[in-house]
Computed example of a mutant assay.
Amino acid sequence: MGTPQLAQQPEPKYWHLKTVLSAALDSEFSVGQALPNERALAARFGVARATLRQALDQLELEGRLQRRRGIGTTVAPPRVGVDVGPGALDGPGGPGDAWTTTGWAREPAPPAVAEALGLPRREPVEAVHRLLTSHGLPVATERLFVPAALLPERPGAAAPRPAASGEQRGLDLLGRLRAQGPDGQDRSVELGSAGAAEARRLDQLPGAPVLLVTTRYARAGRVLAVSLATYRADTCRLTFGGGDAPRAGEAAAVSVE
């Protein structure tokens, strides 16, 4: 039997260049460092700029490079890992939580969130806004929906002042959620595209591929809160055992590889 025709095809020039560029990224560049412009790179490697763009596009798709508005093409940080396995519960705001609370709002619950919480559609709920970064770059944004009626005030805790910042109100809600002691959670993941607001927070263009992670926190079978998190698909990898879970102050890790 003869060799299949596909096996006889030579390696595309851009693919070979991608391999060479990847080695150069490992040996010559650091995370966040900007690459030379396309003209300089094409001259260095002796290729047409069209071939160079194909190689750069592939490296961006694989999460090795990021194109940042106003900065150019930079070396991407290591991929961030999202644990979707049945590991130990460590709810939002806990010791191992690497997210930063950035604000708070009272807004209508999305239909799926209202259903999970057993509320009428578009019922106003408290929403804690949070951001996850790695090497100083945004990799995920989250809205954590918490019906305040399900979370009584913590004994001895001062209620937030009316003029308290959104961040302070968000931190208070996280504390009240943890005080309830969620004893279970479940997650679902799907591929989506970034809306305008998410794209702005993640320094992406609208329509960029993202991973949409929905987490439901429950106690005694009742859902207490629902998280809708949007992860940059080029910076993430899915994990299933919690081994890559980020610690406070560390980079987080999320990609299907």
Results as ranks from 00 to 15, higher is better:
24 A>Y: 00
25 L>A: 00
30 S>W: 00
32 G>Y: 03
32 G>N: 03
33 Q>S: 14
33 Q>R: 09
35 L>C: 09
36 P>T: 08
37 N>Q: 12
38 E>I: 01
39 R>K: 13
40 A>S: 12
41 L>W: 01
41 L>Y: 05
42 A>V: 10
50 A>S: 15
50 A>N: 15
50 A>K: 14
50 A>W: 13
51 T>N: 05
52 L>C: 04
53 R>E: 11
54 Q>W: 04
54 Q>C: 07
54 Q>G: 04
55 A>Q: 02
55 A>D: 01
56 L>S: 06
57 D>V: 10
60 E>G: 08
65 L>V: 01
65 L>S: 00
66 Q>I: 08
67 R>S: 07
68 R>S: 01
69 R>E: 12
73 T>G: 00
73 T>C: 02
73 T>R: 14
74 T>W: 01
76 A>E: 01
78 P>V: 03
80 V>S: 10
81 G>L: 13
81 G>S: 14
82 V>K: 05
83 D>E: 15
85 G>L: 09
85 G>W: 06
85 G>H: 05
87 G>D: 11
88 A>E: 10
89 L>G: 06
91 G>Y: 05
91 G>D: 11
91 G>V: 07
94 G>H: 09
95 P>N: 13
100 T>V: 13
100 T>K: 14
102 T>L: 11
103 G>Y: 08
103 G>C: 07
103 G>R: 08
108 P>W: 11
108 P>I: 12
110 P>I: 01
113 V>G: 06
114 A>C: 10
115 E>M: 04
116 A>P: 06
118 G>Y: 11
119 L>M: 09
122 R>F: 07
125 V>Y: 03
